[in-house]
Measured scan of single mutants.
Amino acid sequence: MAAAAAAGAGPEMVRGQVFDVGPRYTNLSYIGEGAYGMVCSAYDNVNKVRVAIKKISPFEHQTYCQRTLREIKILLRFRHENIIGINDIIRAPTIEQMKDVYIVQDLMETDLYKLLKTQHLSNDHICYFLYQILRGLKYIHSANVLHRDLKPSNLLLNTTCDLKICDFGLARVADPDHDHTGFLTEYVATRWYRAPEIMLNSKGYTKSIDIWSVGCILAEMLSNRPIFPGKHYLDQLNHILGILGSPSQEDLNCIINLKARNYLLSLPHKNKVPWNRLFPNADSKALDLLDKMLTFNPHKRIEVEQALAHPYLEQYYDPSDEPIAEAPFKFDMELDDLPKEKLKELIFEETARFQPGYRS
């Protein structure tokens, strides 16, 4: 834990890192770190609560700039109880001085990944967590956004079992017609939660990839272990087919990539493993919904509104309290091709509203 900075004593240090967030945020305490930044909790002297502050230093890398800009653009436009918001952003007053960006968010005690390492969940908890994931996802999908990296560590939890989806750095506007060349190379989302079509096709992607990830998360809540822990690309596919069985001819016809289709045709026939054999203690309604989410063919996979209306979630289902976005989200430009200098300018502009004396 960093010592509390005395008023006016300059930035606090946390594990050798400068955290320049005073005077409003003090009493910093280390939480963890990701690929390009550290997260601390801090005391907000204005709202009198502890908050989470993520320090991001992305400006050396085009990919990190892209992810940072995506996350900020999306989260500043989203407003939903099951999606983490941005409360404040701290950065230098000029673009030349801006080396880091500090993002202030609600402090959540833990995440689903940490929880599943230590606790076996009751059916009631599984049901409530799944409902909140789908409630947040309904809003995301209504904005025409794909999260693309749903996994237990991106689901934040607090002691009252509130759940918030975080990390929109890989999110995209849904565009089933656009052929994202190089899709697989830039697709760094965790393999275990990846839909089979991501490994088999490169053309376009749809909201059904997020539903697949939610199915993987439900299976993990039922058993405290990942359902498809593939060691590499082909191993991942083999794990999936080992449980779902061989795809039907109709399902194979959806695979545009001939090499991928021929690979699947070359494999020995596998039978589907019954879900109640894998999860003998699970609620039968939970397994019915799991089956509809972990469907090989993305066109037959359940959609988020149908999933919310499934009998497993009937005690929570309330369409009048499951809000959607006001308007579909649009990125003005494809960020993939922009140089990091341009992305830095866009991050600077996007964060201006939090600067003292800002006038829109």
Rank of each mutant, 00 (worst) to 15 (best):
305 E>N: 11
43 Y>A: 13
13 M>C: 09
215 G>H: 01
186 E>H: 06
299 H>C: 11
262 N>K: 00
208 S>N: 11
51 V>P: 14
50 R>E: 06
319 P>I: 10
210 D>F: 06
159 T>H: 08
248 S>Q: 09
76 L>G: 15
89 I>S: 13
143 A>R: 09
234 L>Y: 07
27 N>M: 12
172 R>S: 03
81 E>S: 10
208 S>D: 12
299 H>Y: 00
188 V>W: 03
276 N>W: 13
285 K>T: 08
340 K>M: 00
271 N>T: 04
356 P>H: 02
119 Q>A: 07
351 T>Q: 14
280 P>K: 06
232 H>F: 13
344 K>W: 12
205 Y>G: 03
99 K>Q: 03
167 D>L: 10
209 I>W: 02
338 L>S: 08
326 E>Q: 08
9 A>P: 12
61 H>I: 10
288 D>P: 05
316 Y>V: 08
280 P>I: 10
56 I>W: 01
134 L>H: 07
118 T>M: 10
63 T>I: 07
299 H>A: 12
139 Y>N: 00
215 G>Q: 01
5 A>T: 04
269 H>C: 10
253 N>H: 07
193 Y>T: 04
86 I>T: 15
314 E>W: 15
192 W>E: 02
126 I>T: 10
345 E>T: 14
119 Q>S: 14
19 F>G: 03
336 D>A: 05
96 E>H: 15
129 F>P: 07
91 R>N: 15
199 M>A: 05
124 D>P: 10
314 E>L: 14
229 P>Q: 09
77 R>P: 11
144 N>C: 07
45 N>E: 10
91 R>T: 15
175 D>W: 10
204 G>M: 09
237 L>A: 05
236 Q>H: 02
239 H>C: 09
347 I>G: 05
173 V>N: 04
93 P>Y: 13
285 K>Q: 06
20 D>H: 07
40 C>G: 13
137 L>T: 11
56 I>M: 11
280 P>Q: 07
265 L>R: 12
262 N>M: 12
335 L>T: 09
241 L>T: 10
315 Q>E: 13
2 A>Y: 13
26 T>R: 10
358 Y>M: 08
280 P>G: 08
244 L>Y: 07
349 E>H: 14
130 L>V: 12
223 S>M: 07
291 D>M: 08
333 M>W: 09
119 Q>L: 02
242 G>K: 12
234 L>N: 10
132 Q>M: 10
117 K>L: 10
59 F>G: 13
331 F>I: 00
171 A>C: 12
178 H>G: 07
232 H>Y: 08
250 E>Q: 14
277 R>W: 12
53 I>K: 07
257 N>C: 08
29 S>I: 03
35 A>S: 01
194 R>M: 02
232 H>K: 11
314 E>K: 02
350 E>R: 15
118 T>Q: 10
275 W>L: 00
343 L>M: 02
96 E>N: 14
126 I>Q: 08
2 A>T: 02
44 D>M: 10
77 R>S: 14
176 P>A: 04
346 L>P: 03
49 V>A: 12
203 K>E: 01
148 R>H: 06
8 G>T: 12
170 L>M: 01
255 I>P: 13
50 R>F: 13
253 N>Y: 02
164 K>G: 04
208 S>R: 14
12 E>I: 06
172 R>F: 07
241 L>M: 00
91 R>L: 01
103 I>A: 07
177 D>G: 11
17 Q>P: 05
349 E>C: 15
59 F>P: 13
212 W>M: 02
56 I>F: 00
239 H>R: 15
283 D>F: 09
253 N>K: 03
353 R>M: 05
80 H>V: 12
245 G>A: 03
341 E>F: 14
96 E>F: 13
129 F>S: 05
346 L>S: 08
4 A>E: 15
266 S>R: 00
37 G>H: 02
249 Q>V: 08
94 T>P: 02
266 S>C: 00
52 A>S: 01
63 T>A: 08
292 K>Y: 09
308 L>P: 03
222 L>S: 06
226 P>V: 11
50 R>T: 14
72 I>R: 02
343 L>Q: 00
103 I>G: 08
29 S>L: 04
76 L>Q: 01
337 D>S: 12
258 L>P: 04
291 D>Q: 08
7 A>Q: 03
108 M>N: 12
128 Y>N: 01
123 N>E: 10
52 A>G: 13
298 P>R: 04
93 P>C: 13
336 D>Y: 00
68 T>P: 00
200 L>G: 06
287 L>Y: 08
242 G>L: 09
304 V>N: 13
162 D>H: 14
341 E>C: 14
188 V>A: 02
24 R>C: 06
116 L>K: 12
26 T>W: 08
239 H>F: 07
288 D>C: 14
116 L>P: 05
114 K>T: 05
344 K>E: 02
41 S>N: 11
203 K>H: 07
42 A>C: 12
133 I>V: 09
41 S>K: 11
160 T>Y: 11
63 T>L: 08
348 F>I: 01
144 N>S: 04
253 N>C: 10
154 N>V: 02
155 L>K: 08
33 E>D: 00
358 Y>K: 05
103 I>E: 05
232 H>A: 04
65 C>H: 11
28 L>M: 01
164 K>M: 07
299 H>Q: 04
261 R>C: 06
152 P>T: 02
321 D>Y: 00
180 H>R: 09
309 A>L: 07
163 L>S: 06
89 I>F: 03
311 P>T: 01
123 N>D: 07
33 E>G: 11
227 I>E: 05
190 T>Y: 05
298 P>S: 07
228 F>W: 12
331 F>K: 15
315 Q>Y: 09
282 A>P: 04
322 E>F: 15
100 D>F: 13
329 F>P: 14
97 Q>G: 12
162 D>A: 09
164 K>C: 08
127 C>P: 11
355 Q>D: 10
48 K>G: 03
122 S>D: 13
96 E>A: 08
95 I>V: 08
36 Y>F: 01
301 R>T: 03
101 V>G: 04
148 R>I: 02
340 K>V: 13
96 E>D: 05
80 H>P: 09
317 Y>M: 11
334 E>M: 14
56 I>S: 14
258 L>G: 10
310 H>N: 00
78 F>S: 05
226 P>H: 00
184 L>G: 01
117 K>T: 12
163 L>Y: 06
257 N>M: 06
211 I>Q: 05
65 C>N: 14
338 L>G: 14
198 I>D: 07
329 F>S: 03
162 D>K: 15
51 V>R: 15
354 F>K: 07
150 L>F: 10
103 I>Q: 06
274 P>W: 11
39 V>P: 04
228 F>A: 13
150 L>H: 08
8 G>E: 04
199 M>C: 06
119 Q>V: 09
123 N>Y: 00
45 N>L: 10
331 F>V: 03
353 R>H: 11
171 A>Q: 03
325 A>K: 15
232 H>P: 02
151 K>A: 03
102 Y>N: 00
358 Y>W: 06
208 S>Q: 13
265 L>N: 11
39 V>F: 02
50 R>W: 07
329 F>L: 00
196 P>Y: 03
110 T>H: 11
89 I>T: 11
13 M>Y: 07
303 E>G: 04
48 K>R: 04
37 G>I: 02
75 L>V: 13
345 E>H: 14
95 I>W: 10
307 A>K: 08
3 A>K: 11
117 K>P: 09
125 H>I: 02
255 I>T: 10
300 K>F: 11
57 S>A: 14
354 F>W: 06
329 F>W: 14
265 L>M: 04
34 G>V: 00
32 G>F: 07
152 P>S: 03
19 F>Y: 00
14 V>H: 07
187 Y>G: 07
161 C>S: 00
269 H>P: 10
148 R>K: 02
148 R>M: 02
295 T>W: 09
24 R>W: 15
352 A>C: 13
17 Q>V: 13
341 E>R: 05
125 H>Y: 04
248 S>P: 04
65 C>M: 10
7 A>W: 11
33 E>C: 13
180 H>N: 00
199 M>H: 01
89 I>C: 14
85 G>I: 14
351 T>K: 10
56 I>R: 03
205 Y>H: 04
182 G>K: 07
37 G>Y: 01
352 A>D: 06
79 R>M: 12
239 H>L: 01
264 L>C: 11
226 P>T: 01
120 H>M: 08
165 I>T: 08
61 H>C: 06
321 D>S: 14
235 D>P: 02
135 R>E: 10
350 E>N: 14
6 A>W: 09
302 I>Y: 09
49 V>N: 14
207 K>G: 05
271 N>Q: 08
333 M>Q: 13
115 L>K: 09
36 Y>V: 10
193 Y>P: 04
